[in-house]
Amino acid sequence: MLESRELTKSFGSVVAVDHVSLKLEAGHVYAMLGPNGSGKTTWMKMAAGLIKPTSGQILYEERPVGVESRRHIAYMSTEPYFYNWMTIRDVGRYYEDFFEDFSMERYKELIGRMELREDMKTRTLSSGMMAKLKIAVTLARDAKVYMLDEPFNGIDLLARDEIRTCILQFASEDKILLLSSHLVEEMEAVADRAIFIKQGHLEEIVDLETMRTEYGISMADRYRQIYGHEEVTSNV
């Protein structure tokens, strides 16, 4: 279980995440939603141990995240981060060197499915290819938690289906999947729970099928209800 308690992060006078308390349970795929700048990325980076909270706590299996939790939490950031001398093969070897749960076999298979080649240099990849590489290398880990920040960004329509399939392939009862995206429609069927974050606050967590049954509305509808009066610039 991944849990944040009154988690807060401010950068100078800007409060990016504001007293967010939430629990993510194994066996669910969560869609983390909110316009750009609402705090999704900062929350994820704190869960990945890359950013230290200003106050509050973030716990994995009841213990503060850190070196140990990184063994079990696979995080994919929006931005590319590989060393510029790396080829796609080198990226795999790097993960193999540092993550016990990484499978080179699975990586090679995913790379093939994403139509990438191992000898490609990361420096020369297009943004779409880079996005696929990040997903492939992250999903090649057999982690307990996957946090994918904007997995559909920069990826064309056809490849999105492939990525959705890959994500679903690795979802299971003992795993937590957390996906953030401003492409809300892409996540309707994949996620079963939605976390709405608004200006750093947790707005609500809903069970999507329950919401559809009881209110007859989609995740996108709820998104519009919550953020409708804000300027919708992110819903491209």
Partner: peptide, 10 residues
């Protein structure tokens, strides 16, 4: 961003 390479590892 390169920092992630080091600090995401256990």
């Amino acid at each position: 961003r390169q920092s992630y390479m080091l600090f995401m590892t256990p």
